[in-house]
């Protein structure tokens, strides 16, 4: 479903060339649960941004559902992000001025979905994630776990096929982190493709497929036979 062919990403910092991704070849199938691990600076976030069409490869090709998305313009890429991809970030990235419900609604506002449908979908999601009584709260009135749940609700409100989570538990204590992870894993039952970047080996081990990165390269890519979930 997703295929990266010889993808490289180089940043120019001053007169230095920093290679964040080097000649990556990767294929992700629908419904897979993948964890990406590796030391800081190994290119995990860059990889995720690449998969989420936030970043463009310096060279190589990105095929999504068979189509070459590298060549799409801004508007077309935005559309793909809107319809197929959900992002969850370590620092939640909620809009502080908007309520929890409005934050969840945001992708649908950008997509131009009519109000009635938006309200209905938000309500369902808020209920599913146990946030109904927090709908009108601003992010600063929410706990870390609640904020990340709002962020997950927001990431899934457009029913994406791929959910990309960059250290989703990084800013949470252990218990809350696990709760959030369970929530993400629950999405697998709906057939979503889940990619989780993490530092935490224990969390990483839960994925059926574990990718280790180092210095912009894929060091290992192993599938878990004895699924320990």
């Amino acid at each position: 479903m997703i295929e990266l062919l010889n993808v490289s990403r180089t940043f120019t910092v001053g007169d230095q060339q920093v290679a964040a991704l080097r000649d990556i070849n990767l294929r992700l199938d629908a419904g897979e649960y993948i964890s990406i691990m590796g030391p800081s600076g190994s290119g995990k976030s860059t990889m995720l941004n690449m998969l989420g069409l936030l970043d463009r490869p310096s060279s190589g090709t990105y095929l999504l559902d068979g189509g070459n998305v590298t060549e799409l313009n801004d508007e077309q890429q935005a559309r793909v992000r809107r319809e197929k991809i959900g992002f969850v970030f370590q620092s939640f990235h909620l809009v502080p001025r908007l309520t929890a419900a409005q934050n969840v609604e945001l992708p649908m506002i950008l997509a131009g979905i009519p109000v009635e449908e938006r309200k209905a979908r938000v309500q369902v999601l808020m209920q599913n994630y146990g946030l109904s009584d927090r709908a009108d709260h601003k992010p600063d009135q929410l706990s870390g776990g609640q904020r990340q749940r709002v962020a997950i609700a927001r990431a899934t409100v457009m029913n994406p096929t791929v959910l990309l989570a960059d250290e989703p538990t990084g800013n949470l204590d252990r218990n809350t982190g696990w709760e959030v992870l369970k929530l993400l894993e629950g999405l697998l039952e709906q057939g979503i493709t889940l990619v989780v970047v993490t530092h935490d080996a224990e969390i990483g081990a839960r994925a059926q497929r574990r990718i280790h990165m180092l210095d912009g390269r894929i060091l290992s890519d192993e599938a878990n036979q004895n699924d320990s979930k």
């Binding site: 989420g52 936030l54 801004d74 508007e75 935005a78 559309r79 992000r81 809107r82 319809e83 992002f87 990235h93 809009v95 945001l106 992708p107 950008l110 997509a111 927001r154 457009m158």
Partner: peptide, 16 residues
Amino acid sequence: TAEIGLLRALGAREKQ
């Protein structure tokens, strides 16, 4: 700025 990045991640076009 961060919010603008977020909007783009959520599928906002440059024009939006």
